[in-house]
Design a protein around this nucleic acid. Sequence first.
DNA 1: CTGTTAGCGCATTCAC
DNA 2: GTGAATGCGCTAACAG
Lengths: 343, 343
Amino acid sequence: MVQREGRAERRVATLSDVAQRAGVSLATASKALNGRSEVAPATRQRVIAAAEEISFTPNQLARSLVENRTRTVGLLTSDLEGRFVLPILIGAEDAFGAGRVDVFLCDARGDAVRERHHLNALLERRVDGIIVVGRQTDPRPSLGHELPVPVVYVYAPSDDPSDLSLTPDNRAGGRLSVEHLIACGRSRIAYISGDRSYVAARDRVEGALGALDDAGLELVGEVMYSEWSEHWGRDAAAMLLTKHPEIDGIVCGSDQIARGAIDTLRDLRRAVPDDVVVIGFDNWEILATNSRPALTTIDANMQELGRTAAQRIFEAIDGEVTEQGIHYQPVRLVIRGSTIERR
Amino acid sequence: MVQREGRAERRVATLSDVAQRAGVSLATASKALNGRSEVAPATRQRVIAAAEEISFTPNQLARSLVENRTRTVGLLTSDLEGRFVLPILIGAEDAFGAGRVDVFLCDARGDAVRERHHLNALLERRVDGIIVVGRQTDPRPSLGHELPVPVVYVYAPSDDPSDLSLTPDNRAGGRLSVEHLIACGRSRIAYISGDRSYVAARDRVEGALGALDDAGLELVGEVMYSEWSEHWGRDAAAMLLTKHPEIDGIVCGSDQIARGAIDTLRDLRRAVPDDVVVIGFDNWEILATNSRPALTTIDANMQELGRTAAQRIFEAIDGEVTEQGIHYQPVRLVIRGSTIERR
DNA sequence: CTGTTAGCGCATTCAC
DNA sequence: GTGAATGCGCTAACAG
């Protein structure tokens, strides 16, 4: 920073500088540095040395301009908290290869105007593809098909079936939860869900009820819907245990709810997992690992989602036929102390 | 995506296309679209219309190449969780103006090699500036002064005093905590800190002890150091109350610790805030708002930090004299139910 | 193997 | 007011 005073920037080295210094032509310098084969080893060495001496940093802008690709993708999100977007970003970076591809992260903050703005900015910067990340699994408006770059929707699927969307398989998650509780020897299972207006809430419930049905079991009481909060988890668990003291397992729609439920069980002196087992959803580490006992939960594999999204973007860039529709990605059971006694 | 099959991309409109369609020269089209004054109003209208008709999207790459600035900044982080980096990103976007400037987010994952990689990628993409975000307030290695762009370090300051660093004023935060407890009428105050190896832990303690001293009070017991976890908060609180049942206020080094402490107080049937008040640090919403009662805490104003960082980057770009050293930014007390009875 | 030439899309002189 | 020409830094034909 120090040397930038008064706009008197020292001009940054250019490929011509390298060529001149190595005593070759611009084209040769380019080939040498880009590892093209049509260059004599000795020449290449000279060029590389020259480049290093003046710490040449290739200008990707110029390169992108002529190659007509930027090795850059846009991540357009409305997930303020970053609970989903960050694992997805990491997965995408992984798939792209760190440093080879960079990611523009734009937060639309749930505002359609701002989203339009950012989308435009991304297009002006000629990103090679766009990953759209929502914060719920409810369908979101498509960006449309007029875009000159491939788009993949992650977590929140597009409402247009001809777009490609990747979203966690909440039904399978719900099913997995119940199957795990049954495997733990439970049969009097209740369900505390979140906000019924969320597709995620309903899907998870659906999966759970299906698994119960398959096992010839019935849910204890009704599915309890309200909000995605610890408070609701506490209140719901209290109501539940008053009305159905016989329950031995609680499936929760989220980790927050599960934490609340565990809290209440503790207050009521019901042992977890001996007396009642509890399972959450999301594997939100900060919540799941700090509860007493730690929370068994379902992980949506967001990082994997990001990786897959990146691959799909790549395929589309490379001109492969692009897939369509909503793809439900596998989720994963993470077992902790709330369903199995640790030793 | 649909129309991209087989690499047969419909060529995206260029400025020449616009010019041709409007029946003017390329130069005139450029001037018209960029709001330069040397253009007849009627001509400008025609050009703008033409641009819209073919949905012209200016190529920022080309523009950046000639203007020698990209309106892009890099955000280089090692904060996996995004607890700090996201508010900072939002603040920066705010200051830059959404869409005008875009942000490359790179996650080095605490790995120096990967950081070097990403740094290089950012420089090749000719970002106008770089914001480096660490995940602790301990000093981190400087990126050096050889960089052709301004750099601002946020949260984790640079170990080089001639760099510009912005970090929250943890001392002031510690002081604020104690002053608030005293204002709540407490005088038998204990301190549960986190990991002593963190500068943040020590700074917060220092501020707290200073405030106690100024008030003529003494800490009850010793400052308790261990780890930044809810478990430690629970354990420490239990020890504390056994040894010093008279305490009426607990200052915690983080919200996690505070939640643990509140948990224990609840188990021990000590009322919060009536009997004992508790204050945390970080204002980590998910933790602070879901505890019973909700947590009074210190907010480090990360968003504000991001905004300031962006401004400093701007100033440096515009050639203003760049500041140096570590700047401690004000923090903010957020009062909730753990120190004051809600009605 | 190496060098010359021609753009990539745009902003900017400087004539007209 | 407008347009022809120049160049930003680089890659990709081509010709030697």
